[in-house]
Write a protein that binds this DNA or RNA. Structure first.
Lengths: 190, 190
DNA sequence: CGCCGAGTTGAACTGAATCAAGAAACGTGG
DNA sequence: CCACGTTTCTTGATTCAGTTCAACTCGGCG
């Protein structure tokens, strides 16, 4: 939980009192590797900070190879089916652990209270939304503008350690191509 | 300006005093049709509410046909190169009017003051960021998941009046295909 | 009336998907 | 620590959607 405190302090000024209040609302959740802890159709109840582990976000399909992985979250980051969370409507995708994972989660209702009761809460909520917007915005432009080869190079530049942490087949669909196509892109480049 | 007030009131409770403060910071900007009022490389200084008119967001290219249009904003909506605005870093795209347009704009520095000085401001900032996140998130999933034909149908469902308001060639690149391909998609469907 | 931008249509080309098979890496139990 | 099965990655052949280039139609608007 200390990691989370440091993370928040790096974003904004928070008093000890505010932290006490906020942290009292956190719930620890522990999942084993390869566990789907949010399924398509369910409503996301939490925003979670990853104390340990890693999580994959993907749109499920009949056949496992056709799943579309569109995000990864690691230790020291937040994870949520955030669009489902914001609208409190069913999620269109799954959250799955890629390793044994420990989360600190705050529920939707509790977070609304934090927004209402503390100035710092509202600011934090804005920061989270802004940060996620920037991520998605960059991605939209990359998907519309860049070739798949360029997108591969982008990932390589932006998240070089991703390649040690997850199988290529997930990165392939993150880039928007099949594993076969990714394999050929890598061959072409190297 | 009254439109904007109504719009904000529909989102959250704002006192007359808060509105007075906020609206005193707004700046009216009027542009003719076909005017690029933010160029690639410039830093976006404003978030603007469109009182009248329409705006296209696009990544410019050497040849005009290769431009990538990735957004449209109309009367009663906000417009901004929001990623450039948030980071106060150079924009990678242009904002261009598609008709004579009137904006009410608030500057970055003034908005930071509003965030600091009023609770309602901070909440409004969060709402804007959340709303834009939802938009981009949906789009990411559409670009990764759907065929171009499906994306066309999505636009048709989500924004049916778009087709009356902008030329097809802009919608084509919004969907992520050439105007020729869009023409064939439309033929195939009807 | 003639011009110009928007949209359509055709033909050739291209990058990526698909189908299929084999090689390499990985982890689990003996 | 090795043997085995499973998963991941690679490679080849074929197919397909969409791009590109080019020509043509249509509907304003000067």
């Amino acid at each position: 939980m200390n990691e989370l405190k440091k993370y928040i302090e790096s974003l904004l000024d928070i008093t000890e009192q505010e932290w006490q209040y906020f942290s009292s609302l956190l719930m620890k959740r522990v999942f084993p590797k390869k566990m789907t802890f949010l399924k398509e159709g369910q409503v996301e109840s939490y925003i979670s900070f990853i104390e340990k582990g890693k999580v994959r976000l993907f749109i499920p399909k009949e056949e496992e190879e056709k799943e579309i992985t569109f995000g990864f979250c690691f230790q020291g980051e937040f994870v949520s089916a955030y669009d489902s969370f914001l609208r409190q409507s069913p999620s269109r995708y799954n959250l799955e652990t890629l390793a044994d994972t420990t989360l600190w989660s705050i529920s939707y209702n509790d977070l609304q209270e934090v927004y209402k009761n503390t100035a710092v809460g509202s600011t934090m909520g804005r920061f989270i939304a802004e940060k996620l917007f920037l991520l998605k915005s960059k991605r939209e432009q990359s998907l519309l503008n860049d070739s798949s080869e360029q997108r591969y190079l982008n990932v390589f530049k932006d998240r070089p350690n991703l390649f040690e942490q997850v199988p290529l087949k997930y990165i392939a669909s993150y880039i928007g191509v099949t594993p076969q196509a990714l394999s050929r892109i890598r061959k072409r480049i190297s």
